[in-house]
Design a protein around this nucleic acid. Structure first.
Length: 809
RNA sequence: GGUCCAGUGGUGGAACUGGUAUACACGCAGCACUUAAAAUGCUGUGCCUAACCGGCGUGUGGGUUCGAUUCCCACCUGGACCACCA
């Protein structure tokens, strides 16, 4: 009876033939830009979890369309980077070909789910016409001093054979392949994202429609802390050790200084360090331990004293010992700390282990350091010369001022966020458009020569030498300097995967513009993205990078708005039936194609939206699909009856229809699809029950058509089919969303709850506008209420139209 | 350790701003149809009680209130993110 295969295919073809989803920019209509995070095509294809977010935005976009918006709802592919490249290497195909195949596979899978994407605006980050502008933006950053070369040790993935940014490391492991990360000194390009740290942090306030948890994650990631940098002179040397501290008020309790083992000063002072060979051994032992193990809380702190080296506390000229220890990280602050064991838990543990001096300098509400644990609270200073008796906060101010006056230190804001390591030693990425000239140094590739195309190469496997495979193509590497025409070599590193996704949402606005990144008029019309939906795993990566990139484009005057995404929602994962992440490894992957074949795309869409709250993760359950399918079948059945029988309107059902129109509309706008579907089910159940009881349909055909309209965003194929079966000759998605009538929604007769002492004792059918006195009179006449009125009536609470509570004693 | 979020039937979950807890769906049970099964339809389905009446029930304990899943305090459990961050 309900042949989903033929119906779904038919409408997909018809919609495409009619260009139904081509973006329109009609005058007198407001715009709405709704965006999905675009996928990276991997060749494995989609599982049923992937489309969940796409279904939601599709429903939302269809509602907006019917509400008369010019809707921009595009899709594209983030096709550079490791997933595509590793797939290509594994299957021994050229990444370009592999990516093209994967994209086709993805598009086919998306197509059968009936999404309303405007494919004419498809973006592919590996298209030279696209990455021309990725390169252009990079050059602008370089011009402004925001891209710089560095040789600092960075995260190196030995399996992917490339350097990585902090954001690509999870618990000391490569986020892509899970290998242990090593630290390696490597020449690299770095973007000065820390210059934007304060703006990235403060502008979160301007985003009320982002989830608080996401903003909190970004705040954590940026990790702003205010403190001072203090310079400790090294006795008898010209060198200084700079330490960062947020607790300068405890500096009189500093009994030693600790450096990160990799701190450059260690090597500089090697001739002065009496036990240098011991120090070297310690460092090399440590390098064998992964960052993960090193960071483990349970691991005991270890360290080595630098014999013969003393640091001088600038406040009291006291000479203190210097250690290197694994609990100090080079990547945070200055890579050196002043240790105050009486008032810092970590310093305390280290001091206890090595029998170091502990000196208390803070007293906190009569509590003082008791020798058993560090006292970390703020308090009043003791044993701190002129600063004694000041509060911690006063002391911090005065000490910072003194340091600045004596030029021994300064106030400093420190970020956990590091500059963005932007080069990869891999083939499949945007070439960095710079040239190294023997005479002129680093020179930009002239703008008119962009895009600098990624050359064809024999072997695209990573070399592991710290050079990208591009370095082997001498024809390409050897070039002339754009400035002096002398001999020069191209930069051979490529950009990270994140680069292309930093501005793709602008490309959709103006997809084929080869003269500029985006046309200003079009940008002004469509920007910013009104609603952005995607996985929470991007909260601190893509979403920070893209905000940074966008702010830079704003500073350039390319875009007119400071934040790219006004409203943001995260999609909760769909887990396997066994509660584990869907993965080949567990054998719990469900392919949407199989589900569509058996139950239909419409049933799949309804099931996924009905599973639970959108943001929440949930386990897949194929049985649930039967329910979604049955629901659609009931609608098909009703439509059949409507096609040959006349309805006689039942005001109760008409009222319920209008309530449902209102609920479905607000629920979609709030992304509460589960309750929207539940409301639709209730309405259908009521209509069917009424039909069975009274043997005629309780709605007019016009009102039934309204039902089909509000059902359409969820199940577009069957709705379109049933709509056009009613003799409509235009697509249901070109029809206007039905208006609900407030008069019909307001009930005239309500069920008034009567409580005695807060306990339900009766439900009275009364007029909605009944007065307190009338309600009371009716209530006390009720048998079951009478029974419970066993004492004096102390109080009557009346909530009009809802409830009466009688309090007795 | 820090920050944030959550805890409701056998299961997924619902309950708008403090006002009938368990909507909707899945599952299960019984009945009808059938030789039988599937499909479908009907009925039931928080716990205690044989049943009605009633009582108890939203992680635990307390508080505010006429009334608390909802607000406040403490605790327990689970999750997310960050984390020797100086």
């Amino acid at each position: 009876m309900y042949k989903h295969q033929t119906i779904e295919k038919k409408w997909q073809q018809k919609w495409r033939a009619d260009n139904l989803y081509r973006t329109k920019q009609e005058a007198n209509k407001p715009k709405y830009y709704i965006l999905d995070m675009f996928p990276y095509p991997s060749g494995v294809g989609l599982h049923v979890g992937h489309p969940k977010g796409y279904i939601a935005t599709d429903i939302y976009a269809r509602l907006k369309m019917m509400q008369g918006f010019n809707v921009l709802h595009p899709m594209g592919f983030d096709a550079f980077g490791l997933p595509a490249e590793n797939y290509a290497i594994k299957n021994k195909i050229n990444p370009k070909i592999a990516v093209a195949e994967s994209i086709q596979k993805f598009k086919d899978q998306l197509e059968i789910l009936g999404f309303c994407y405007d494919w004419e605006r498809e973006v592919n980050t590996t298209d030279p016409n696209y990455y021309k502008w990725t390169q252009w933006t990079f050059l602008k950053m370089w011009e402004k001093g925001l891209a710089y070369e560095s040789n600092e040790p960075i995260n190196w993935c030995p399996s992917c054979k490339t350097g990585l940014a902090n954001e690509d490391v999870e618990g000391g492991r490569c986020e892509r392949c899970g290998s242990k990360i090593e630290k390696r000194p490597l020449r690299q390009w770095v973007l000065k994202i820390t210059d934007y740290a304060d703006r990235l942090l403060n502008d979160l306030e301007k985003l009320p429609d982002w989830e608080e948890s996401t903003k909190e994650m970004q705040r954590n990631w940026i990790g702003r802390s205010e403190g001072v940098q203090v310079n400790f002179k090294i006795s008898g040397e010209s060198e200084e050790i700079a330490v960062f501290t947020t607790r300068v008020d405890t500096i009189f309790g500093c009994t030693y200084v600790v450096l990160a083992p990799e701190h450059p000063i260690v090597e500089k002072l090697q001739t002065k360090i009496e036990n240098y060979s011991e120090v070297k051994d310690y460092i090399s032992d440590l390098s064998k331990v992964s960052e993960e193990e090193r960071a483990s809380l349970y691991r005991e702190k270890t360290g080595v004293k630098l014999k013969g080296i003393k640091a001088v506390n600038p406040f009291n000229q006291e000479e203190v010992e210097v250690f290197i220890a694994d609990y100090v990280l080079l990547s945070y602050g200055t890579g050196a700390v002043m240790a105050v064991p009486a008032h810092d838990e970590r310093d305390y543990a280290f001091a206890k282990k090595y029998g170091l001096r502990i000196k208390a300098v803070i007293s906190c509400q009569a509590k003082i350091y008791d020798g058993k644990q560090a006292l970390e609270d703020d308090g009043v200073l003791i044993n701190s010369a002129d600063y004694s008796n000041l509060s911690s906060s006063e002391a911090r101010e005065k000490m910072a001022a003194w340091l600045e006056e004596k030029k021994l230190g300064f106030k400093k804001v420190n970020y956990r966020l590091n500059d963005w390591v932007f080069s990869r030693q891999r083939y499949w990425g945007e070439p960095i458009p710079l040239v190294h000239c023997e005479k002129c140094g680093v020179v930009a590739v002239p703008e008119e020569e962009l895009p600098l195309k990624l050359p064809e190469v024999e072997s695209y496997e990573p070399t592991g030498t710290g050079e990208s495979p591009l370095a082997a193509i001498t024809d390409w590497v050897n070039t002339t300097c754009p400035k002096c025409q002398g001999k020069a070599k191209r930069e051979t590193n490529t950009m990270p995967q994140w680069a292309g996704s930093c501005w793709y949402y602008l490309r959709y606005i103006d997809p084929s513009n080869n003269d500029f990144l985006v046309n200003k008029e079009l940008e002004k019309y469509w920007s910013p993205v009104d609603f952005y939906v995607g996985g929470a795993e991007h909260a601190t990566r893509h979403l920070i990078y893209a905000r940074f990139w966008h702010k830079f484009l704003f500073d350039l005057g390319v875009v007119n708005y400071e934040e790219p995404f006004i409203k943001l929602k995260h999609v909760g994962l769909i887990m396997g039936e066994d509660g584990r992440k869907m993965s080949k490894r567990w054998g719990n992957v469900i392919n949407p194609n199989d589900i569509v074949a058996e139950y239909g795309a419409d049933a799949l869409r309804i099931y996924e939206m009905f599973m639970g709250p959108f943001e929440q993760a949930g386990n897949w359950n194929t049985q649930g699909l039967g329910g979604a399918r049955k629901f659609i079948e009931k609608i098909v059945l009703l439509s059949e009856i409507f096609s040959h029988e006349n309805g006689k309107e039942n005001t109760k059902i008409v009222s319920l229809l209008h309530k449902t129109i209102k609920k479905v509309e607000t629920d979609i706008l709030e992304f509460r699809f589960n309750t929207a579907i539940s409301a639709l089910m209730i309405l259908i159940n009521e209509i069917l029950a009424d039909y069975k009881k009274n043997k005629f349909l309780p709605l007019s055909l016009d009102n039934w058509a309204k039902f089909l309209q509000i059902f359409a965003p969820f199940a577009p194929h069957i709705s379109e089919e049933l709509w056009q079966n009613l003799g409509k000759n235009k697509s249901i998605f070109l029809s206007a969303w039905p208006q609900y009538d407030d008069n019909l929604i307001r009930d005239k007769i309500i069920s008034l709850v009567v409580q005695v002492n807060g306990k339900l004792r009766a439900n009275l059918e009364v007029a909605a506008d009944i007065s307190a006195d009338d309600a009371f009179a009716k209530a006390i006449a009720h048998e079951n209420v009478k029974k419970w009125l066993t004492g004096d009536i102390v109080k009557k609470i009346f909530v009009p139209g809802k409830l009466l509570n009688i309090v007795v004693k």
